[in-house]
């Protein structure tokens, strides 16, 4: 089963994403900030990471850099708000594969996941 790590500081957002992915047959783990995500990524392997950008402790961009150091093959999709294009570009430079824009549209998320995992 494809394992996805959902990283967001708002548990409301994690819950939504978790539900969507679970419904679509993915196995989901959650992390509440970049540091937590890094910690989980070190302990476990994931096929995909869905990463929020603005988070306490360690932001999404920093986390992408660290995860990529850890695993150059890591596949990461950024979750972005309108207006965060510069940060997303930075994350792409650091090795993130794609992004989705909040508020989430389920079909766009699934489209992006399929693309990144293919």
């Amino acid at each position: 089963m494809t394992k996805v790590l959902v990283v967001d500081d708002a548990s409301f957002m994690r819950m939504r994403m978790n539900k969507l992915l679970t419904e679509n047959g993915y196995e989901v783990d959650e992390a509440e900030n970049g540091l937590d995500a890094l910690d989980k990524y070190q302990k476990d392997s994931y096929d995909l990471v869905i990463m929020d950008i603005t988070m306490p402790a360690m932001d999404g961009i920093e986390a992408v850099k660290h995860i990529k150091d850890l695993d150059p093959e890591a596949k990461i999709i950024m979750c972005s708000a309108i207006g965060q294009q510069q940060m997303v570009i930075e994350a792409l430079k650091a090795g993130a594969k794609d992004f989705v824009v909040k508020p989430f549209q389920p079909d766009r998320i699934m489209e992006s996941i399929k693309r990144v995992l293919s």
Binding site: D9, A10, F12, M13, R16, D52, T54, M55, P56, A81, K102, P103, F104
Partner: peptide, 23 residues
């Protein structure tokens, strides 16, 4: 930064919930 983050996160969540005015 933490104040900014609070506004940012709330914006994201309220938009996801569908409360347009709050977003």
């Amino acid at each position: 930064q933490s104040i900014f983050r609070a506004a940012h996160t709330l914006k994201g969540s309220s938009a996801a919930l569908g409360h347009v005015n709050m977003a």
